[in-house]
């Protein structure tokens, strides 16, 4: 076990753990935001740069600070490492800059976007974004395309976190989903549009941090905060059948996987509870599900309260003037 100090809190973790996962072990506001890292997907992370942290001391053996900010999702901890996240002004500045970079080509169509209310970029923009934009040029635009008959891809909203690419790679047997072109022309695409017919392709909707990939059976039906999330299970031959159904009255509006507070699909009985396309898109009948009870939603979530709550870290930032 190695000892690492994050924001003056000491934590013991296994060697080889990343800084982000060590911070998640502490929990609370020490955890840096992550737009692209997804602990259930191999190789994800390092791309969005929102989880940048300052390393004030590299390790007990070599206590020099690291000159650059490092991506906490892909940097393993060392014994005696001292990490600054919320206590570092430099981290705040650069995270605000990364937020601005992510937003310059992101359309501000939250009022008509299905992801609004559970969008990670919305949360990030609320915490670190600026009021205005300094970008005067035209935003890059794409036409929305269909990926299969149940998934819609709005490339305009995409922040290129590559999560769906890893999902399509690791959950399904054929690689039919990837990134084409490069630089700011890069786009998520399918090589052959009709090739998306495997049973777990719907999970790309769950991993998408923004509204780029949305469920066509739920599009424009309701805002997420008007729905009641309920834990439910069903007998399914393809997947574990553990899901969250989003209900309005007695009707099921949509079905998603069970996500934890970091927006990642939970592990149930040691296995990640990805759900299959049949459960997600076709079982909208209440009789097919066994409702287990209400889903616990983070108190600060807009889904719980219909409004955003000011984060404690911003309050402390205002008080200390940092």
């Amino acid at each position: 076990m190695v000892k690492v100090i994050i924001d003056d809190i000491e934590v013991e973790v296994e060697p080889g753990t990343t800084i982000l996962n060590a911070a998640r072990k502490i929990g609370g506001d020490v955890v840096p935001p992550a737009m692209c890292y997804y602990s259930k997907l191999q190789g994800s992370g390092g791309k969005c740069r929102t989880c940048l942290v300052e390393v004030a001391a590299g390790s007990a053996a070599d206590p020099r600070p690291m000159p650059k900010l490092v991506a906490s999702c892909s940097t393993p901890v060392m014994d005696g490492m001292v990490v600054k996240n919320k206590t570092s002004e430099r981290v705040y500045d650069n995270r605000a800059a990364v937020t601005e970079f992510l937003l310059i080509n992101h359309p501000l169509d939250c009022p008509i976007c299905d992801q609004a209310g559970e969008c990670h970029l919305q949360d990030l923009g609320f915490e670190h974004g600026k009021e205005g934009t300094r970008y005067e040029e035209k935003r890059r635009t794409f036409d929305p395309i269909d990926i299969g008959d149940k998934i819609k891809l709005h490339m305009n909203r995409c922040i290129l976190c590559y999560r769906c690419v890893y999902t399509a790679n690791q959950l399904t047997d054929q690689r039919v989903h990837g990134v084409m072109h490069r630089g700011d022309h890069a786009e998520i695409s399918t090589y052959i549009e009709k090739a998306i017919d495997n049973d777990f392709s719907g999970n790309v909707i769950d991993v998408c941090p923004v509204g780029a990939l949305t469920d066509k059976t739920f599009r424009f039906k309701s805002r997420v905060w008007f729905l009641k999330p309920m834990e439910a299970s069903c007998e399914c031959t393809k997947c574990a059948g553990k899901a969250v159904v989003w209900m309005f009255g007695d009707e099921i509006y949509r079905v998603t996987g069970r996500k934890d507070k970091y927006g990642e699909i939970e592990d149930i009985d040691g296995k990640t509870a990805w759900i299959c396309n049949e459960c997600r898109f076709d079982k909208k009948d209440k009789t097919k599900w066994k409702i287990e009870g209400p889903r616990v939603i983070n108190r600060h979530s807009v889904i719980a309260q219909n409004q955003y709550v000011v984060d404690e870290r911003l309050e402390t930032k205002k008080l200390t003037g940092k």
């Binding site: 791309k47 969005c48 740069r49 990364v98 970079f101 005067e136 290129l160 490069r182 630089g183």
Partner: peptide
């Protein structure tokens, strides 16, 4: 550099393109 950027990380992907557009202006 905007042309050569691979498009993986956001500061480079968005930033190089932005700089290119401002300089062109």
């Amino acid at each position: 550099y905007a042309h050569e950027s691979c498009g993986q990380c956001s500061p480079c992907r968005e930033g190089t393109g932005w700089m290119e557009k401002v300089l062109r202006r």
